[in-house]
């Protein structure tokens, strides 16, 4: 599987470390329901069969976190961007 790293170009997935779902956002620890929110953030996942936004770390390359849009049924990658950009978007 080749992942088009926005910095390095297409590289084999072997060069990357995987984290998983890119969508959960770290909650505010000061929120009154922080415990519940963190539970959801750390543990609960949509785990979709199909389009998925996920985080890969180019550990054997540029060490950038890359957000990848990939279909979990076909492994087809449709877009990649630096994770930080996805976060700001």
């Amino acid at each position: 599987m080749l992942i088009p790293c926005p910095y390095c170009g297409a590289r084999d997935a072997e060069e990357f470390s995987y984290r998983g779902d890119a969508t959960p956002v770290r909650p505010d620890a000061a929120a009154p329901d922080a415990a519940e929110q963190f539970h959801d953030y750390v543990y609960l996942r949509d785990n979709p069969a199909g389009a998925f936004r996920e985080l890969w770390y180019h550990s054997a390359g540029c060490r950038r976190w890359v957000e990848v849009e990939r279909d979990t049924l076909t492994h087809a990658i449709t877009a990649t961007r630096f994770a930080a950009e996805g976060r700001r978007a």
Partner: peptide
């Protein structure tokens, strides 16, 4: 060593850019 480095990069690039 590698795990912590990755963790810091995660924090910097994803949580607190």
């Amino acid at each position: 060593a590698a795990k912590v480095s990755q963790h810091l990069d995660f924090c910097l690039q994803n949580l607190w850019p």
